[in-house]
């Protein structure tokens, strides 16, 4: 599904990623954890194709294709989805209109016909119910005046509508209270299948109580310094990151 080799990335001359190797297979859930400033958000932005970063070395393959030269929208059309840590507010563009445009542009990108409005409306209703969202969301402007939790729920709602092959959830748990966390996590779990994969980027273990990862990686100073199973996340939760720093520098 996703194969990253020796990825180096910098912004404005500052190296952020210093040799990342990561392979995610269909059906898997990976968690990437790490302290602030370790490069987690950069990694997700680079995978999604943000153009501000300079990539000096390495490769990214998605569903068997080299995507290094593809635009963000082309990557999205292939089935890559990034749930943003800070979803952008766009006044004047309704959630419905935005999703309609996004879905139909993605379908066009894959050579498919536009989705009939009736089918789209039906799908929207179903997914909103799944995420316990109020119908009024559909006519509101994207993220405008949304609470932190509403923004994150809206991200997962879009994920549900776009049905990506790979979803990267960047700090989806931040800003969520316990109930919203459970709803969002349940939504994500319902979207899991043997054909798609999820990368969860998080600071804390608590989201991983709900979305159980197959693999956990620790990102530190632009490198994956440790990988393990879900017990690694628990260990990090109880011991913090310092022991890892010591292990590396030792």
């Amino acid at each position: 599904m996703l194969k990253i080799k020796n990825l180096h990335a910098s912004i404005d001359g500052t190296d952020i990623l210093k040799g990342i190797d990561l392979e995610v297979k269909p059906g898997e859930v990976h968690a990437i954890m790490g302290p602030n400033g370790s490069g987690k958000s950069t990694l997700s932005a680079v995978i999604a194709g943000r153009e501000d970063y300079e990539i000096s070395q390495g490769s990214i393959e998605f569903v068997g294709e080299d995507i290094m030269d593809l635009s963000p929208e082309e990557r999205a059309h292939m089935g890559l989805f990034l749930s943003f840590q800070y979803p952008v507010e766009i006044p004047g563009v309704s959630v419905t209109n935005f999703l309609k445009t996004a879905i139909n542009e993605s379908r066009k990108g894959r050579g498919l016909e536009a989705m009939p409005a009736k089918d789209m409306l039906k799908a929207m209703r179903e997914k909103m119910a799944m995420l316990e969202m109020d119908k009024s969301f559909m006519s509101r402007s994207i993220n405008e005046g949304f609470s932190g939790g509403e923004k994150k729920r809206n991200e997962i709602f879009q994920m549900a509508m776009l049905e990506p092959k790979l979803a990267i959830l960047d700090e989806t748990d931040s800003g969520l209270d316990i109930d919203a966390l459970r709803i969002v996590a349940n939504g994500v779990n319902k979207l899991r299948s043997k054909d798609n994969a999820i990368v969860v980027i998080t600071h804390y273990q608590r989201l991983l109580d709900h979305i159980i990862p197959d693999k956990v990686h620790v990102l530190f100073n632009g490198k994956i310094v440790k990988s393990g199973d879900k017990s690694l996340a628990l260990e990090l939760e109880s011991k913090g990151y310092d022991w890892i720093k010591e292990e590396i520098t030792a």
């Binding site: 963000p72 999205a76 776009l162």
Partner: peptide, 19 residues
């Protein structure tokens, strides 16, 4: 953000301008 959701750069710019 808009491009990540599959909206082409021209359309994304247009949506932001309309907004």
């Amino acid at each position: 953000y808009l491009r990540q959701r599959g909206i082409g750069v021209k359309e994304a710019q247009a949506l932001l301008m309309l907004a």
